[in-house]
Structures are given as structure tokens and as C-alpha cells.
Design a protein around this nucleic acid. Sequence first.
DNA 1: GACCGCATG
DNA 2: GTACGTGATGCGGTCC
Length: 550
Amino acid sequence: MVRVPRVQLSRLPGGRVLVTDGDSRLELGLGDLPAYVNAREREQAPRWVWDDTARWYPDLLAAGVRVARCHDLRLVHHLLRRAPAADQRLLAGEQSERWDRLGPSVASEVGLFAADDLSEHLRADLEDARQVRTVAESLEAARLGLLVAAESAGALVAAELTYAGMPWRRDVHEALLAELLGPRPRHGARPQKLEELADQVRAALSTPTLNPDSNTELLTALRRAGLEVPDTRAHTLRALRHPAIEPLLQFRQRAHLFQTNGWTWSDEWTQGGRFRPTYQPAGSVTGRWSSNGGGALSFPAIVRPAAIADEGWVLVVTDVSQLEPRVLAGMSGDRALAHAARGADLYQGMVDDGAVATRNDAKLGLLGAMYGATSGESGRMVAELTRRYPQAFALLERAAHEGERGGTVRTLLGRGSPSVDEAWGSVEEADPEREASRRRAYGRFTRNFVVQGTGAEWALCWIADLRNRLWHLGAEGPLQARPHLVFFLHDEVVIHAPAHRAEAVVAAAREAAATASALVFRELSIDFPLSASVVRSYAEAGKTPPPQVD
DNA sequence: GACCGCATG
DNA sequence: GTACGTGATGCGGTCC
């Protein structure tokens, strides 16, 4: 294997950058960095080591420079701090407590980094040496090394997603808003169609002054109309029969659209034909990403029609079917479950293997086991399935038990769970009942952590490999001129690609899934079938899925 | 700052 | 028969 050289970048006072590379040291102006990075990428692409990808990479991308590999010291520091296989003593040293405290950079701060900031002056080379050694000397150098690489590659993907953005047609979005809400209201006012619906609700409840945004007022008005309800959730309201309900539900839905994906949101997050949410890799403790701007985590179906590929381009929308049950099969080595996982529908596979009567039973039982259901129909399923899939279910039971006795668990590649106190705060629980309940709740968390966390690792390996394949798919030029990722959410990916490359992109996504499976689960081959649709608009995706999948 | 309600996987 | 403190994230509203 070719050893990839590591080049560390550290920010110095005065807009300078320290470049360290083995024994050589070099100082550059921040403005000269893109050209330097670009030149080195062209000879032998090194691994760029920096404090935080979100601080360094956006400026490089803006200058047209794409890098092949990086090592994100902030993400990896936090990862290693909790990794059971890592010797914590090796992480201690100069500035290490500052790395402990280093939080994610926020989008609004990015512009500030060009300016001097002594407090941010961290020596990447020193921390890198500690991290490299910690991984190399860990009990599981191979797995942890893979996780570190995947986590860092994910950070590159996150920056590129925001940079490229989801293709966005503002005119289509605005037409949609006009249809559902009316013309854009002046600042602070309620849109016309919303006000009309509010009037209908007021009339139906004979409460002329009602503010339907206020649940307190709503509850009183509903009760005065003889509707005894515990809350005002849509699900509760739907069960009622009353002329106020229909307009109220419509009001709710459209008010939500207005507030979360209306004109204000559009002004802030959609510019130049692109929707650019910001992603936060490992934003949740299991390693899943979160989003800290624009709301990438809840990209509502109602606005998806506005996500439309450029002329001559398409969106390739692809997601993994039943990621977590497959991950469970892989990490537990349960051959019966792995067998059921062959094919497009794992739940149907369980039926065909004679483990359960119906597909719904399979789903209920498996999800119940992964989330820790103990009662109801789901609970009964779990008992039966434990007999059929002993290893898979034993793995979940062990994880739950570990959490209940106050311990921590880890993913397959070695990400550690936070302790119960870290996760939910340290409390002196006087009541033993409540203490027991807290422990059981944490047991459900650790039970789910192992599967969700390993699923996130698989997904990282998938997008990292896919990112590489897309770059080498044949086109030349900058990122946006080639097929490129524009959206990622847990187990789903959207690629923007020239129409004539759509089939190649789908193939790349499938190959990347196979690669991820082999990387994470080694010789134990688990199928990870993808559903893929090639569409112009995101809203068209998955409308006619080949097999039924959920 | 707490709560509710809603959207996503 | 059991339990109601939780699968997660983020967002924007009201209430006090």
C-alpha cells in the first residue's frame, strides 16, 4: 500500500499559515494557500490535516480547489476521546485541553477566520502526531483507522454539499407558496390564505378573536364547542368530527410551511439557484450528522418540487433499503438474518424463511428489538424472533444490559457511547423507582446506539467511496462540472449529474454500497440493495419504487 | 426557558 | 402483566 504523506496546516497570527510536512516547515499567506494546495494535489495528493474541515475547506472550494483526502482533527479528537480502544494517555499533551473544548464552527463565523484570531491558534502538527499514534497503538488500529478516515471524508462531503448546493428553482417554490398561502405578506403579517382559514376556524368555533396559533386558546375554544381533547395534535384532531377541524388542519399545515420553508427561509437559504443547508458531521452522538442551518434534516416533501436539476442534468436519488436491520445482521454475524437480508426486502425475506407470518410482523418485531419495545404486539414479536435470530437479538440484549448496568457500548468500528451522565446529565436520583427507570431508558439508548452508530459508519464509508467514484467518472473540470453529491441524510443521497451519465452514477452508487459493506463487515457479505430513481425534480423520486420498501 | 407541535430518516 | 422520563434532530410558535 502506498503511504499517503500527511501535510498539516496550522493557522498563525497575521493571516499566515504554517505548513508542516515531515521535517519541512513553510509559512504562507492565507491568500496563497489555494494555489499551494492545488499544486500539491496535482503531484501526489497528500492527506491534508487541519483543525476543522468547515474552517478550511469552504475557502478552498470557493477558489476552485478540491482535495482528495483530509484528516479532521476536531472530529477525530472527539471520536478518540470516547473510543474504548484508544489509550487516553496518548492524547494528552500541549494544547490538548483546548482540543477537548473545540466546538463546531458555525456558518456565520466562517468569514471571521480570515481575520486574526490568536485564541484559535492551534498546532495541527502536534495534535496530529498524538492522534496518529493513538490510532496506531490502539487495540483495533485497522477498524479505528477506517473510522477516522471515513469521519474525515464525511467532513469533506459535508463542505462540498453546502458548496455545490441542491439545485433550486426559486420561481417554482414561490409559485407553490402563492398557491397555498397567497401573495407574500408584509413583514410580521399573516398570509392572506392563512388568515382566511383562521376565519373559517373562528366561525366554526364561534370564537371571533381566536388565534389558532395559540394552543391554549384553541384548547379552550374546542372544549367550549363540546370537543373534549387532551391536546391539539393533528393526530388527535383528525379523530374528531366537527366543521372546525378541516380548516384547522389546513391552517396548521400551511402555517408550518410559512414559518419553516416560506419566503424568509428562501431569502436566507436559497441563492443563485441553489439551496445550501449546512451540515454538521457527527452532530449527534451516534455519529449521525445533524444540520445547523437551513434544515437539511427535515427537507419537507411539500417543497421538494422546487428542487429541480439544471437543464440537461438530472437528480439521481438513491437510498439504502432497511439499513439498520442489515447492519444488525452484519455486526452480529447472524447467518439467519443475513440470509433474510439477501434481496431487496429484508422483511419479506424473514417471511420467506418462515420466521414470521407477515411482513408487518417482521418489521414490527425487528424495529421493536432495535428500539427496545417490551410491550404490545411488538414485544410479543420480539420473543418469537429471538428464537429465530439468536445472535442478532443477543447483541441487542447485551447492549441494552450494558446500558442498564451503567456501562457504555461501542459501534463496530469503535465509536464509544457517552456515559449516562454525559448523555443526560449527572443527577442524584433519590427515588429508586425513578433511578431504575432512568437506567432502563439508558439501556434503550445503548441498545439503539450500536445499530444506529454502525449504520452511520456504513453510510460514511458509502458516501466517501461514492464521492471518489463520482469525481473519476470521466468528466473534467471543477466539482460542479462533474456528477456531484448535493444532498445526504442518514441513508439517502442525491446526486446532480449530466443526464447522459445517470446510469453510470446509479452504478457508482451501487458499487460504493458494495465497497462499504466489504470495508465494514469484511468477509461476512451482507447485501445493501439501493433503490434509485433518475428524476428532474426531487419530488418525483421514489414514486414508483420497484419493490415496496420502507 | 419551558412547553407544544411538526417535519425528516 | 408492564410502563408511561426518552429513538433522534432541528425549528418556530406561545406561555409565563
